[in-house]
């Protein structure tokens, strides 16, 4: 049994001061990640693995729980506490052009997840479609997960699941004839 607390609790006073400065900065992001986790795991269709602070641009690795289709996707979560919308009704939360480029180039399906911290709702947008106009300032409202479990949420999650499966199947089909360059 682990009898020692994590190193965070054993830190020195100076470290506490440094941590205090970063708490407020990170609190909104952490809260958004918690909201996204709760909403996306509604119905227990996905496993979400937090990639840690050091993973560049990716916040979560999403895995389908279906053993017959154990596919994966990457998620980038951005949170806003402003609760502001564009004239088209898109939530004003954005992803930088640099991050957007990195995410589009990932070999797995990648999704941008915008979190409205005030409403505790979650918006999802794919980053591999031809119709991407860039989500540098806002995220569309079409795939929205409400703050509480609902039938609408189930439909959005089912759609996301189907999207990941379809993407993965297409990629798998194309790579079927690939031979490993590391033969044993």
């Amino acid at each position: 049994m682990n009898n020692r607390l994590s190193p965070q609790l054993l830190q020195s006073q100076s470290q506490i001061v440094v941590e205090k400065e970063t708490i407020n900065k990170n609190a909104l992001g952490s809260r958004g990640e918690a909201i996204a986790y709760v909403r996306l795991t509604e119905g227990y269709r996905f496993n979400l693995y937090f990639m840690g602070e050091k993973a560049q641009t990716i916040d979560y690795l999403l895995e389908l729980r279906d053993k017959n289709a154990p596919f994966f996707a990457f998620l980038q979560v951005k949170t806003t506490a402003q609760h502001e919308f564009t004239q088209a009704g898109q939530l004003k939360v954005g992803i930088s052009t640099h991050d957007l480029g990195l995410l589009i180039n990932k070999p797995l399906p990648t999704y941008f997840v915008g979190v409205d911290e005030i409403e505790e709702s979650v918006y999802i947008a794919p980053l591999f479609s031809d119709t991407i106009h860039g989500y540098t300032s806002s995220i569309p409202k079409k795939y929205k997960l409400e703050h509480m479990p609902s039938e609408e949420n189930k439909k959005v999650i089912a759609k996301l699941e189907k999207d990941i499966i379809c993407f993965s199947k297409v990629v798998k089909t194309r790579k079927l004839k690939y031979k490993t360059k590391m033969p044993i």
């Binding site: 049994m1 607390l5 407020n24 952490s30």
Partner: peptide, 28 residues
Amino acid sequence: DKRTLAIAANLLYRYGGSTIHVQMVEYD
């Protein structure tokens, strides 16, 4: 399970104000 923990963390954030930070720890 992790979803239960995430719901708890979410509620702690919701009712804890803007000055709290919740982190998972390896402790018994």
